[in-house]
Amino acid sequence: MINSPHTVQGLDTHGNTNTMKDAQITQQLQQWLIAVANNRDKRAFAQLFSWFAPKILRYGVSHLNSSANAQELLQDTMTNVWKKAHYFNADKGAVTTWVYTIMRNASFDMLRKMQTQREEMLSDDIWPLVEAQTAQEGEYTDHLMQKEMKRYLSLLPDAQQQVIKGVYFQHLSQEELATQLGIPVGTVKSRLRLALSKLKQKMGGKL
């Protein structure tokens, strides 16, 4: 199923200059990541996985001192790649830089947990993956309500948060949202129903 990192198309020719080869790799990685972001393409994800895995493991062994920790770092990093692919912005830098940031952050939090027994994840505040979202504020008029809403929302599963935010905060139609997420409209509807009833429950009928 998975190609070994070295048989990926175009990467095994040795006659190329480094820069040409680099450019090819850069482009290939980007295609895969965009396929993951837009189409939840599992095959493209597997390609990314096998390209990055040996490198992440090597980094993990040298920074976290055990292969068990390195495995955990691999799982953490690639889970984030899968779940956050839609935040990748090619204008801001290469896929390798983006994955490096995610890996470095996960490794920093793991190290801190090992050394201090503290559980907070500080890395995403120190090295934000995405620019501050403060610009989104002002979409509500009632500030108290906004804060409360955000808190309740954050308690929902990611998939449900997503449809709520899409429909109510970004004002997308259910059809537009379905296209954007690459899921059937029926799924959007059912997630929305579920999310709303949970929110109602949590907010004690204030919604």
Partner: peptide, 26 residues
């Protein structure tokens, strides 16, 4: 190695949800 990766890949991609940014509380 790739066999163990396969199960990790399946594990990760089984959850189809994308993560959303939780607004930062400054």
């Amino acid at each position: 190695v790739e066999l163990s990766w396969m199960s990790m890949i399946d594990d990760i991609t089984d959850d189809d949800s994308q993560s959303l940014l939780v607004p930062i509380d400054i």
